[in-house]
């Protein structure tokens, strides 16, 4: 027994240390060059960039509702296109809560980084399940207000109420404060691409079997925009809103 005692500890220690040395390909405390500090402008990892600069509003978890549009929807991507998304990311949308990304515009990102973010968004978005042939163009003029009211009551009133001031499933979209904070373009985008994360269908599925036509989309947006109260400084307001 005493014999055993004498050698068992060294052997155990040796076994343990060789096990540790062999079992760990990496010592946890050893610093790796990849973990070294990077200047904020040198970060090129899409996930890091997106998490740092976009996730606050556009969310990380695509399966849950986000405050601003989830950026992984195929229909939205097809509708807006890479160019528009790039331009919005670089310059922001003045008058709304979308800030500019580029350093020159007051943001924190280099042109390369904006490119990485936009490419990443495009790449991770799943393709459209089927080709959408009747997709309206991204940009368009406002349509006719009166026709817009009719189109609204056909496609939207079911949720937002007959006059748009809120219904069983959705709140008011004619609240002047709300309209003040969104552009006509973003109204148009919401009408066409919907907000699936919030339960709002896209332009093909507002009413089962009926697809909104280009004109109807333009008209609805025009009718919604007509609820804006004239701002004190109309010139400035219009400029912002036609963005």
């Amino acid at each position: 027994m005493t014999e055993l005692k004498r050698w068992i500890f060294p052997v155990l220690a040796l076994a343990l240390s060789s096990f540790l040395l062999a079992g760990c390909d990496k010592i946890p405390g050893k610093p790796e060059p990849e973990e070294a500090y990077q200047r904020p402008t040198e970060v090129t990892d899409f996930n890091v960039l997106y998490t740092t600069y976009c996730a606050g509003c556009h969310s990380l978890d695509a399966s849950k509702p986000a405050a601003a549009r989830q950026l992984n929807e195929a229909l939205y991507l097809a509708f807006a296109g890479r160019e528009a998304i790039l331009q919005i990311t670089e310059d922001g949308v003045p008058g709304t809560t979308m800030p500019a990304g580029l350093i020159d515009k007051g943001g924190k990102l280099t042109e390369e980084q904006v490119g990485i973010i936009v490419d990443g968004i495009v790449e991770r978005t799943p393709p459209l399940s089927q080709e959408v042939t009747d997709l309206p163009p991204y940009r368009a003029e406002l349509g006719r207000i009166e026709e817009g009211r009719e189109a609204f009551s056909r496609y939207c009133a079911g949720c937002h109420g007959e006059d748009g001031s809120g219904g069983p499933k959705a709140g008011s979209i004619v609240d002047p404060a709300y309209l003040e904070l969104v552009t006509n373009q973003s109204l148009r985008t919401t009408v066409v691409a919907g907000r699936t994360d919030l339960g709002m269908p896209d332009f093909r599925n507002m009413v089962p079997g009926e697809v909104m036509s280009d004109e109807e989309v333009e008209d609805v947006v025009a009718w919604l925009a007509s609820h804006r109260e004239e701002p004190d400084n109309p010139a400035q307001g219009n400029e912002e809103r036609n963005d």
């Binding site: 740092t52 600069y53 606050g56 509003c57 556009h58 509702p65 986000a66 405050a67 919030l198």
Partner: peptide
Amino acid sequence: SSEPTPSHMI
């Protein structure tokens, strides 16, 4: 810019 609004508040 990095912390999402909790989804149950949305």
